[in-house]
């Protein structure tokens, strides 16, 4: 039973993360920025179409908004902590790699190389 759920932003895309076993926990919340990739939810289809989109904060964004998004997060942190910034990518399992690769390329261009593909712990039952 889940009554209260603490969420950071309103999701406009469907981002059901896949299962994995080799998980790393992200400890320092302040050093993490989150991106969502998935298909827009049904109520946003008219606005954003059905193709996979990227969500930054509360808005659907284009790829060219990534550098600014990263920079905005970076300036809030002291110089010494900046190398530890990790991008948490919550990507829907059914999205194809084409769009994901485009986002990855943007991240590499922006110099944000530490990436965490968000995933749920796989138990024996859930299989592949």
């Amino acid at each position: 039973m889940v009554v209260v759920k603490l969420r950071e932003s309103n999701l406009k895309v469907k981002a059901v993360t896949p299962y994995a076993t080799e998980l790393t926990k992200l400890e320092k919340k302040s050093l993490v920025n989150t991106m969502y990739i998935g298909r827009p939810l049904s109520q946003f289809v008219n606005q954003y179409g059905t193709k996979p989109r990227l969500q930054l904060n509360d808005k659907i964004a284009d790829l060219n908004e990534i550098p600014l998004f990263l920079e905005r997060h970076k300036v809030k942190l002291p110089e010494g902590q900046r190398p530890g910034i990790t991008t948490s990518m919550k990507i829907d399992g059914d999205v194809t790699m084409g769009f994901v690769s485009d986002v990855k390329t943007e991240l590499r261009k922006a110099g944000q190389l530490k990436v965490n593909y968000s995933a749920k712990k796989r138990t024996e039952r859930s299989g592949f």
Partner: peptide
């Protein structure tokens, strides 16, 4: 509240992208 709250914890596969 202890029982019904689940704090979203962020776990995932950590990767290091190559330099551009």
């Amino acid at each position: 509240f202890l029982v019904t709250t689940n704090i979203v914890e962020d776990k995932g596969v950590l990767v290091r992208l190559p330099q551009w």
